[in-house]
């Protein structure tokens, strides 16, 4: 029971991180119908920015955790926003009316570029940071097994939930959100009611990138290590989460992330840690075969 509870906590935490990254995938897919395979690298850059940020703040002697955390979060979001914007500008916008394969290849190219760029700039070795937030609550104890809910996990939950609420409000209530939904449904028509489609698409990339940055910072806090390669796997898993939830559906991305996180946690706990990726990608295969529209996605309606 205790073991189960602990895995549930771990799985939810992991799931929220996947969910945050998956939002970026699903948003971009919704608006331009393309999978941004370089999105995982944006997350990786966010994680690196966190390492750099905390290290620099440590050197400057700013060690009060809430302040340090806020500074790191904002700088990471700011920088990844620039990366996201540039990525769209350089790798996707010139190919917007090209055949679908072209932007896909361009996305994979951008992804490889970012990995190598970070590897060159930061070195290939794993970068550790000293734990910034340590400790936690003991939820309960049973026969010598303690179920821990760490402060980092609580932070991840709260931050993710807050971002989800803010994000839902942005999409539902603001005119930017409305413009995004309009572009999703009919891009040409959106421009005919005076919406700047290019800017809306740019902002979509920027928002997706900042969410990925938050996920990157959280992961750095959670695991304490990053390397230039983490974006690949996390990206593909978040993509799996987005597909599982129904690509294009925002609540679906979050739900898919949570399910994937839980499956991974329980699989590692009860079967084998080595094969947890197999579990994750088996889901991807099964969903694509049996329910390609995902859990919350709308099935593709044939246009007459």
């Amino acid at each position: 029971m205790g073991y189960f509870l602990q895995q549930l906590i771990n799985g939810l935490t992991l799931g929220m991180i996947y969910g945050l990254i998956a939002l970026g995938y699903t948003m971009v897919y919704g608006i331009i119908g393309m999978i941004n395979f370089a999105h995982g690298e944006i997350y990786m850059i966010g994680a690196f920015l966190a390492v750099i940020g905390f290290t620099v703040l440590g050197l400057l002697g700013i060690s009060y955790v809430p302040v340090a955390l806020l500074i790191v979060l904002f700088t990471a979001m700011l920088f990844t926003a620039v990366y996201g914007w540039t990525l769209e500008r350089v790798a996707y916008r010139p190919l917007r009316s090209a055949p679908r394969l072209a932007p896909l290849i361009s996305a994979i190219g951008a992804s490889i570029f970012f990995q190598n760029y970070v590897q060159l700039a930061q070195g290939a070795r794993v970068k550790p940071i000293a734990p910034v937030i340590s400790g936690g609550y003991t939820v309960f104890e049973e026969g010598g097994f303690t179920v821990q809910l760490s402060y980092v996990q609580i932070l991840i939950w709260l931050l993710t939930l807050a971002l989800m609420v803010a994000f839902a409000l942005l999409i539902q209530r603001t005119s930017l959100g409305r413009a995004q939904r309009a572009c999703e449904q009919d891009r040409a028509m959106a421009s005919l009611v005076g919406i700047d489609v290019n800017r809306t698409i740019s902002l979509t990339f920027v928002i997706g990138a900042t969410l990925a940055a938050v996920a990157g910072v959280m992961v750095t806090l959670y695991y304490g290590v990053v390397d230039f390669y983490i974006g690949f796997l996390a990206g593909i898993k978040a993509f799996t989460a987005a597909v599982l939830g129904g690509i294009g559906s925002l609540p679906g991305a979050m739900l898919g992330g949570l399910i994937l996180g839980l499956v991974e946690a329980f699989w590692s706990a009860y079967f084998s840690v080595e094969y947890k990726d197999v579990a994750a990608f088996t889901i991807l295969v099964l969903v694509l075969i049996f329910k390609p529209s995902g859990l919350l996605g709308r099935p593709e309606v044939e246009k007459v």
Partner: peptide
């Protein structure tokens, strides 16, 4: 959504709207 531009200006590009 057709009144996007009026609203966008009034909302400070959605920041204030949020």
């Amino acid at each position: 959504v057709a009144q996007h531009n009026v609203l966008m200006r009034a909302s400070g590009y959605s920041v204030a709207g949020l």
